[in-house]
C-alpha cells in the first residue's frame, strides 16, 4: 500500500550489532531487518539490556556495525561524511546537555550549525526556521528562558525542537519519555506523531512505554532475545509478539486492551 510520494529513508538489512574488540566480537543482536518510510512514527521497544541503545548508537553512527547494511536515503551509512550526515539525521539523546546556561533559542539555533558559515552566523532564514521549530513544539514563550529554568518535560520539547531545526529526513530519539510523568509521556509521543504527519519526517524512538507506542506508532521494532520483529502494532499483537517480550512470571500482555497487566 505504498503511495507514490512515500519512499524509504532508513533501511537495515541483515544487520548485526554489538561490540568489537581486538580479541573478540560480542554480538548483541543480529538479523535485524526493517525499512522506515517518510512520514512514519516508529517505536523501538524491548526489555532492558536487550540492545535498544546499541541499535540506536549504531544507526546514528556513534558505534560501528558488525555486519549487514544500513542504508540512509539509499546510501551506505558509513560512506556518508559527518557534515552530510548532519543534514540527513538528527538525534535526541538521554544524556544531559553540557551547558544548562544555554538559552532555549541559542540551543535550538545550534541545530542550524550544519548550514551556517565558518563562524556560525544565523541568516534570516535560519532564524525563521528556529522560530518555526519553537512553534511546532508549542513553546514559543520559552524562547528566552535558560535551560536550567526548564522542567524535564519542557527541556525534552526544546531538544525535539533543536532536532527539527536541524531539518533532517529522520530524527532518532533515545528514550524521549524517561523522567516524565504519565501526562508528559503521552504528550511527547503524541507530539512526535503529529510532527511525522505535519513535516513528513521519519521519527524513530526507543521507549519503555509499550502501550502508548502501540496506540501511536505506524510501525514498531520489537527486540527480543533471539529475534527482532518489525511490523505494524496490530499485526504484532495478533502474532503474539508482546507476550514473549518479558519473562512470564510477573506481567502478562492483554491482547484486548493492548496493555500489560500485573499477575494477581
Amino acid at each position: 500500500m505504498k503511495t507514490a510520494n512515500q519512499h524509504t529513508i532508513l533501511k537495515a538489512e541483515q544487520l548485526s550489532i554489538g561490540y568489537k574488540t581486538k580479541k573478540k566480537e560480542t554480538v548483541i543482536s543480529d538479523n535485524i531487518n526493517f525499512e522506515l518510510e517518510n512520514g512514519q512514527l516508529i517505536g523501538l521497544v524491548g526489555a532492558n539490556g536487550i540492545g535498544k541503545s546499541t541499535l540506536l548508537r549504531t544507526l546514528i553512527s556513534v558505534q560501528p556495525k558488525l555486519s549487514g547494511n544500513i542504508l540512509l536515503n539509499n546510501q551506505a551509512l558509513e560512506s556518508i561524511s559527518a557534515s552530510k550526515l548532519a543534514t540527513q539525521l538528527s538525534i535526541v539523546l538521554t544524556e544531559a546537555i553540557t551547558s544548562k546556561n544555554l538559552s532555549v533559542f541559542e540551543l535550538i539555533a545550534l541545530g542550524r550549525q550544519p548550514y551556517t558559515n565558518w563562524i556560525g552566523n544565523l541568516s534570516n532564514e535560519d532564524i525563521r526556521i528556529v522560530n518555526n521549530a519553537l512553534a511546532q513544539v508549542n513553546i514559543p514563550d520559552l524562547k528566552d528562558k535558560k535551560c536550567y529554568e526548564l522542567s524535564d518535560g519542557q527541556l525534552q520539547k526544546v531538544m525535539i525542537a533543536r532536532a527539527l531545526a536541524q531539518d533532517t529526513d529522520i530524527i532518532i530519539l533515545d528514550e524521549p519519555t524517561t523522567h516524565l510523568d504519565m501526562y508528559h509521556k503521552a504528550y511527547i509521543l503524541k507530539l512526535l506523531q503529529k510532527l511525522t504527519k505535519d513535516t513528513k519526517k521519519t521519527i524513530l524512538f526507543s521507549s519503555h512505554e509499550i502501550d502508548l507506542a502501540i496506540q501511536l506508532c505506524d510501525k514498531m521494532i520489537v527486540m527480543q532475545k533471539d529475534s527482532v520483529v518489525f511490523d505494524e502494532p496490530c499485526n504484532l499483537i495478533s502474532n503474539g509478539v508482546f507476550e514473549s517480550l518479558f519473562p512470564g512470571d510477573l506481567i502478562k500482555f492483554d491482547n484486548t486492551s493492548g496493555c500489560f497487566r500485573v499477575k494477581k
Partner: peptide, 11 residues
Amino acid sequence: LLGDNYAKSLG
C-alpha cells in the same frame, strides 16, 4: 556546549 555526541551529530 551540547556535549560530544550532539556535537558530532552536527557534523
